[in-house]
């Protein structure tokens, strides 16, 4: 696969219509049309939030609104053909998934649309919040792995919302070689004591720390709109590998964030702050344990897992190679 060093990114935040797959596919098509009409080139990667096709709080309605990744891909392909003809681009999209065994997941896919249409990866949410306002585990099954996959736009991982709140999940993605982590999210706004909802500030902090600790890009796309009184905060943002906030959308309202990603920044950041290499070297007991799980869960062969696992516990020279 030819891999671009630089690519253009669009993060789309919008309010879906609850339970209305057709209306929400139409909104995705409308976003494609807006991007196609822009003077700038059509983005290489377009990212949508968690549960984009149905809204987040669907409770026992999950089965009504779930689709297979293949069906989603087919719909996206037709939407792209109608609204962004002759474009080839990648898409990250959160949706409720039904697998071939009729199990239900809160998932996000990474797919290429256009010349070589295919699904590269489906991430199934690992950390299903089931406390307070959340009740996910009652309705969907947990995912089991953090997969890292090659794309034409770098080596990527997807974490969905709370997955990324656990620093070990971003660490595993980084150790497996991710250069960019995509986070489709649905975060209900709460904590109104300051100039912005507390969860917006917290998410910004989480993402900046993850990006700077591991020297990678983090792209976050947040759902917006109210669902039964719970308003989601968008704040869709791109953070660079120095933890630098490149761009951020308002926390309310439909928006499209556009930004350029230069994967060379990853190499520059990791040379300046070799924290990821240090981690591989200095926690020789922890790193292989973190990475061993991938084999158990049948993750893709040829992932950077093996390489990183072998490097764990080696000398500083090994770290140097990882850095470069």
């Amino acid at each position: 696969m030819a891999r671009a060093k630089r690519f253009e990114l669009a993060l789309v935040q919008l309010a879906p219509r609850k339970g209305d797959l057709e209306a929400n596919f139409a909104s995705i098509g409308a976003a494609f049309a807006v991007l196609a009409a822009e003077k700038e080139a059509f983005p290489n990667v377009v990212v949508f939030p968690e549960a984009m096709l149905s809204g987040y709080f669907v409770e026992g309605g999950v089965r009504d609104v779930s689709l297979s990744a293949r069906d989603v891909l087919g719909r996206l392909q037709r939407l792209a053909k109608a609204n962004a003809p002759k474009k080839t681009f990648d898409i990250v999209l959160g949706f409720y998934e039904i697998d071939e065994d009729d199990k239900l997941y809160n998932s996000a896919l990474y797919a290429t649309i256009g010349a070589e249409t295919r699904v590269h990866h489906v991430h199934r949410k690992l950390f299903l919040p089931t406390y307070g306002v959340f009740d996910e585990e009652r309705f969907v099954t947990r995912g089991r792995s953090v997969g890292v996959f090659d794309t034409a736009n770098g080596r990527a991982a997807i974490l969905i919302c709370e997955d990324a709140c656990h620093s070990l999940a971003t660490t595993v993605a980084a150790l497996r070689g991710a250069q960019i982590i995509y986070i489709p999210s649905a975060s209900p706004g709460r904590g109104m004591e300051d100039f912005e909802p507390a969860n917006v500030s917290l998410w910004r902090d989480i993402i900046r720390v993850a990006a700077s600790e591991h020297g990678l890009f983090v792209a976050y796309a947040g759902l917006v709109g109210f669902e039964g009184g719970k308003g989601f905060t968008g704040g869709s943002r791109l953070v660079g590998p120095f933890g630098d906030l490149r761009v951020e959308a308002p926390f309310t309202g439909d928006a499209i964030v556009r930004a350029s990603v230069d994967l060379e920044d990853v190499a520059v950041a990791r040379a300046a702050l070799p924290a990821l290499g240090d981690l591989e070297t200095n926690l020789p007991e922890l790193v292989p344990a973190l990475l061993a799980a991938e084999g158990e869960t049948g993750a893709r062969k040829g992932s950077p897992n093996g390489r990183a696992a072998k490097s764990a516990g080696k000398s500083r020279a090994a770290k140097g190679r990882t850095r470069r």
Binding site: K18, G19, G55, F57, V58, E59, G60, G61, E227, G228
Partner: peptide, 9 residues
């Protein structure tokens, strides 16, 4: 109790 749909479904 068993039949669970949110208010805005």
């Amino acid at each position: 109790e068993f039949y669970l749909r949110p208010v805005d479904y």
